[in-house]
């Protein structure tokens, strides 16, 4: 059963300049109830890896450096 990948615009945006994941911070990744935030292997910063978001906002609220912005998913806007 062959598969294809589709791209998707994700609702959560992380400001790489503000994110301090390289210092060991994992707060947003820890709190997300859907486990969709992961470390981006290329940049070492947090990013939204899966488009499966409840726009609930713990990631944004708990980030110590205000690096996270939760937008409403495109289909709902």
């Amino acid at each position: 059963m062959p598969i294809a990948s589709q791209i998707s615009m994700v609702p959560v945006v992380i400001d790489d300049d503000k994110c301090i994941a390289e210092k060991g911070c994992r707060t947003c990744i820890d709190v997300c109830p859907l486990d969709v935030l992961w470390i981006n292997e290329e940049t070492g910063k947090a990013h939204m890896k899966y488009d499966e978001c409840w726009y609930c906002m713990p990631c944004e609220t708990d980030c110590p450096t205000d690096a996270v912005t939760v937008n409403i998913p495109y289909l709902l806007r």
Binding site: P33, L34, E52, C53, W54, C56, P73, L75, L76
Partner: peptide
């Protein structure tokens, strides 16, 4: 909306 995670309940 068709968004799988746009549910009333927490989708977990």
């Amino acid at each position: 909306s068709g968004y799988l995670y746009g549910t009333y309940e927490n989708p977990s």
